[in-house]
Write a protein that binds this DNA or RNA. Structure first.
Lengths: 237, 237
DNA sequence: CCAGATTCCTACGAATTGTAACAAGGCCCG
DNA sequence: CGGGCCTTGTTACAATTCGTAGGAATCTGG
């Protein structure tokens, strides 16, 4: 497993070698970089040099109380702190979390859950930059963050929220049938029988903005009695 | 228990009334505001108007798959999502977390742990707003200590307290939908229901100071029927 | 080619939002 | 105290969005 230089760094602090090994290998398989320590003093010495993104800390340590470590970590460092402990009492968990831990995992644990939880925590670190909000297709560029549609000449046409919902649905499922019903479920939610014209109109307006020829639509194709298909080579970025 | 206007809002989605009651009372005792729903449709309808800080979601719902709800929540809203489920398998937990949940609590649960976990998650939300009072975004610099907005040319424009509140709210949650109602809750507090156009005016004035083109605003975007989104790459310092 | 169903599209109107103008209140300074 | 100046909510009206209605256009099966 290759390790990218900017892969998140996870620091492991546990006195049992077996646990360290299991965690380290599971995390590295998942693409993280790891550092392992058996004693709090070594762990803290390393912190002075490197700042990990996540710290996994066992509460029972030979040289120091784990909760103290957690508390200092949470206060001083910006790192996420996850306690991994054999102490399963609710009281233990609550105090651990209150002292600054971000999560509390009970031994025995499943490595895949540890990985999933770490990912869930890290996901919050970079909220803005990871979501793909720009799609390119057949000379068009749709900017969902700015609610703007841009053609080959670079002319921008704004689209509304409702139009954007439909467009996004199409761009996420290109070249596949999207039934009228599933479309209403995904969007408005208010699934009334006689209300389904609203969808027609939304699509009609979207077609207009895409300069579709009504007689011969190239992008949004109607499947009579079934739904719609969005043709077009979509690429998100 | 008195509820402060700016206390974090927790939205509960569970089909069992007993669970809802237990959670709601525990959370309100802990100083949170709560909203409870039995069905996903009601829950989602409420989301359109208010944006809670945390959502507690049960996976087994009468009208919709819980995981779908979680996924949409995580993608669209910025809210923390905590699954509370009777399904205890590791596989369930991992998929729940991967679909966007921030935490996964297994039934039966202890309310105090739920509270502790919510607090742990929220603690991460507001690391910036304590000390930083200068934000840089798209050529602008906002100095909240001096109530001054500074453009690329270095020209300073003063802004008022009310405008600063709105601006700060935007800068703390960039590129996320901020619902109209949650905005009024965060700010004015005293909310005349729908007759309160003060918010519109505040935003209009803020737009003017940001030199926004009324026809095509680049920073403060209106989402018809929902709220506003602040685009712009914010950096606090 | 016909009948019936389905879909498109234009126009209209209800709801929502933008903004200019006005008014109420606070503050500073003479 | 009184008069400007700033702030901010309120009101009124303009602009925008988007669902609805209803007839025109299109499709399908026979």
């Amino acid at each position: 497993m290759t390790q990218v230089a900017d892969a998140p760094l996870v620091s492991i602090l546990d006195d049992e070698p077996a646990i360290r090994t299991i965690l380290a290998s599971a995390l590295e398989d998942a693409g993280f970089r790891t550092m392992s320590f058996a004693r709090a003093t070594e762990f803290e010495a390393a912190l002075a040099k490197t700042s990990p993104d996540v710290c996994l800390v066992d509460l029972s340590l030979p040289d120091k109380d784990g909760l103290t470590v957690v508390h200092q970590l949470a206060l001083e460092q910006g790192a996420r702190v996850i306690i991994i402990s054999g102490r399963a009492e609710v009281r233990d968990r609550v105090t651990g979390l209150e002292l600054g831990a971000d999560d509390y995992i009970i031994k025995p644990f499943d490595p895949s859950e540890v990985v999933a939880r770490i990912r869930a925590h890290l996901r919050r670190d970079a909220p803005t930059e990871n979501k793909a909000d720009t799609a390119t297709f057949n000379g068009w560029v749709a900017h969902f963050d700015r609610y703007v549609l841009c053609n080959e000449a670079g002319i921008e046409t704004p689209f509304s929220h409702a139009e954007g919902e439909v467009l996004r649905l199409f761009l996420e499922r290109p070249k596949r049938l999207i039934s009228r019903q599933s479309m209403q479920e995904t969007l408005g939610g208010a699934a009334g029988e006689s209300f389904d014209r609203a969808m027609d109109v939304r699509i009609s307006r979207l077609r207009t903005k895409l300069n579709e020829d009504p007689k011969n639509p190239k992008l949004i194709k109607t499947i009579y009695g079934a739904g719609y298909i969005f043709l077009g080579d979509v690429q998100w970025s």
